[in-house]
Design a protein around this nucleic acid. Structure first.
Lengths: 192, 192
DNA sequence: CACACTAACGCAAATATTTTGCTTTAATGC
DNA sequence: GCATTAAAGCAAAATATTTGCGTTAGTGTG
């Protein structure tokens, strides 16, 4: 994750790991409780049973900690569902992704990952997406289908969604993105 | 701009306006000087000849102030150049936009607008883009050309660029986005 | 133009957060 | 085990943020 790295023999075992888990969990608990005013380094530290200075030294700031937690939340917990066809796989995946990301907590996650000025965490999210797509593509190839490239999927479907989440007040329904998907799959010319 | 709004008779004249200008200028000056560590509310206040509490009361936090300043910076200072054709107008505009946004300060601007949790500022940026596009479209229509819709331009060109700026470590050269543009203009099928 | 009204600023005390130096705890390698 | 030292704890110091209250100066009215 995005924690400050040391050169000397790092020591990731035991206590360090426990602190990491406790702090991340504390963040999630406080986030779940609502009250964004309660979400401060001292509060998180208290909830995690840890000293504030520990958090400052390991994560640097609340924003970086939140960025780490958000990146962790955004890691997919399972393979994309197999529906039997490329189009079905992508539609199902897209439905879940749109729902997750355009929700209030979803938008917050996106903002948080970007917030920490920690390019690695943002890049990680992109990597997660690529991996999901690659597994869908692999299945498609195994079926004899010819899937679009990952870059095309990112440019034509993910990017428009994220752009709207970040820069506009309302995000379209899934149908809008399903349409973008079909344009890609059918090699349609751009809608004018 | 994103400053806290009051219901009672607002008082935007004279002193308030001067403070606003002084504070924004102070932020720009400190940003220009580099040293991100120097960029704190007390420092900005000192540079602007103002009390910190003034900034806290008007802007709430450094992040919101930076968001306002970034939104202001992102406001286009002129009409898009007229090159005589739709494709030329869009290519020229795109060249400048890619150069501006993928630079180090450009990326910082994007992060800053989004940073303040101030959806209005982000939405403003999208509006600026729409306006630029609309003026290019109007010229195209006057020439008898048929320009793509604003949404298509945002989805197919701007969104991929912003996505890469925010989520990946390297942003492609202009040529990449010129290609996306030509795909849109020529109604080409998606590249596989 | 003088005057009342009050939004927005300044000032300074009260809080809260962040940094830092030093001590203690406990992983890791031998 | 035992030495070594990364990472945590603790507490004082430094900074940043909030808040109450007095002052300044836009704004509307007579």
């Amino acid at each position: 994750m995005g924690e400050a790295r040391q050169r000397g023999g790092a020591r990731p075992g035991g206590r360090s790991a426990r602190v990491q888990v406790a702090v991340h969990r504390a963040v999630r608990e406080l986030q779940a409780k609502g009250e964004p005013g309660e979400l401060t380094v001292p509060t998180v530290a208290a909830q995690a049973g840890v000293t504030p200075s520990t958090i400052y030294r390991r994560w640097g700031s609340l924003a970086q900690l939140l960025s780490d937690v958000a990146a962790e939340k955004l890691r997919p917990d399972s393979e994309p569902e197999d529906t039997g066809s490329l189009r079905g796989d992508l539609r199902t995946w897209l439905e879940q992704y749109v729902e997750e990301m355009s929700s209030q907590p979803g938008r917050a996650m996106v903002r948080d990952v970007l917030g920490g000025n920690q390019p690695e965490n943002a890049a990680l999210c992109s990597t997660y997406l690529r991996q999901q797509f690659e597994s869908i593509q692999a299945r498609a190839l195994a079926r004899g289908e010819t899937p679009p490239s990952t870059d095309v999927l990112l440019d034509r479907i993910v990017a428009p969604m994220i752009y709207r989440i970040l820069f506009t007040s309302s995000v379209p329904e899934v149908e809008y993105f399903w349409r973008l998907l079909d344009d890609v799959l059918e090699g349609k010319p751009a809608a004018q």
